[in-house]
């Protein structure tokens, strides 16, 4: 018999299959973070090292890829395969959770590619911290993916609506998280806004963890922020999926 776990497994493996069939798609999808890594990192002031910059780029690749993932669902809503899946006995939450879980795979692969590319340029790999960092990032990405799918379900036949909202939110979230440049150097109002951005805490946690500082308090705040986004995303997403028709 089936249950929520097996149903989620069916959806997850279906989502993952095109990625496995064409693994290079994962690398093609990370062009933007790589551009920032190649063309922005050299512009960093001397006091900001590659060690500081790389965790931000790992989070950025998660943010870019995962926030767009709803467009895959949007396309399936438009072509009809989402409707076909709604008529199967698959449990509605599984239709969302399976999809969102799959987002973790490209994020981890992309993180590995970024780290591997930076090792020759003096980036120090602290394995335990990096792995813990990826766990926190995966939880965050589960929530972000769910929110992207929620946006797709809400936009339905209005593709422009999906992209408008996604693009409008993407860069403020990215800049306010201090991903490219430290927010501490900015004016007070910007720093205040940054404290309201859950992504800020994730980025701070990643920086500490990628540097091998596992026991930092930022690990806890980062984990809390990631779990909050994850839980909120799954809650909103499964509700949207249950109402989907």
């Amino acid at each position: 018999m089936t249950n929520l776990v097996t149903d989620t497994g069916v959806v997850f493996s279906r989502e993952l299959r095109p990625v496995l069939r064409n693994p290079f798609s994962v690398v093609f999808a990370m062009v933007q973070p790589l551009v920032f890594l190649g063309l922005f990192a050299p512009l960093l002031p001397d006091d900001l090292s590659l060690q500081w910059f790389v965790p931000g780029i790992v989070v950025m690749s998660c943010l870019f890829g995962t926030s767009m993932t709803g467009s895959n669902l949007l396309f399936e809503i438009q072509t009809g395969s989402h409707e076909r899946m709604l008529v199967t006995p698959l449990r509605r939450p599984a239709l969302l959770i399976g999809r969102a879980l799959k987002e973790i795979v490209p994020v981890v692969v992309q993180a590995a590619v970024i780290v591997a590319l930076c090792l020759p340029f003096g980036f120090d790999l602290h394995l335990a911290g990096t792995l813990l960092g990826l766990v926190i990032l995966s939880v965050f990405c589960l929530g972000l993916g769910s929110l992207s799918y929620t946006l797709a379900l809400a936009a339905k036949n209005q593709e422009w609506l999906f992209w408008t909202v996604q693009q409008t939110l993407l860069f403020p979230l990215l800049l306010l998280a201090g991903m490219l440049l430290p927010v501490e150097a900015g004016p007070g109002w910007l720093q205040a806004l940054s404290r309201w951005n859950p992504l800020t805490y994730v980025v701070e946690a990643e920086r500490a963890l990628f540097a091998g500082d596992v026991w930092a308090s930022t690990t806890v705040t980062g984990a809390i922020a990631a779990v909050a986004v994850g839980a909120f995303g799954l809650l909103v997403g499964t509700r949207a999926m249950q109402r989907s028709a």
């Binding site: 279906r14 396309f75 438009q78 008529v87």
Partner: peptide
Amino acid sequence: YIGQGNGAAHSQRGRDE
């Protein structure tokens, strides 16, 4: 159920779907 659209997603292979 065979709806008005395509049941198989365009990004997938037929057999996989």
